[in-house]
């Protein structure tokens, strides 16, 4: 059962918690915090927030993985 749960978690969320939490922060922060603050600015600049956020997220996840491999 635990192997099934592990595989399901890995299937949906991957091998680390950093990425799913980061995606939740990115999408939740954009949709629930930034967009209600200023709809016009979000319409024009929201994609920059998402793209930069995704780049930062993948760089951080890779750095963390590279550090773990080194140890």
């Amino acid at each position: 059962m635990s192997a099934f749960l592990y595989r399901t978690r890995k299937l949906l969320f991957g091998e680390t918690w950093l990425l799913p939490i980061g995606v939740a922060v990115l999408v939740g922060g954009g949709g629930l915090v930034l967009r209600p603050l200023d709809h016009g600015a979000w319409h024009d600049l929201g994609v920059v927030f998402l793209l930069v956020g995704a780049v930062v997220l993948v760089v951080a996840a890779v750095e963390r993985g590279a550090g773990a491999a080194k140890r």
């Binding site: 991957g14 799913p20 993985g65 080194k70």
Partner: peptide, 26 residues
Amino acid sequence: LVIGVLLMLFGLEWLRKNTLRLAGRK
């Protein structure tokens, strides 16, 4: 939104693992 989040979860994980492979760390 659901589609986007699902694809981001898959895509970012593949990107992470294979960037590490390209760097020789996996």
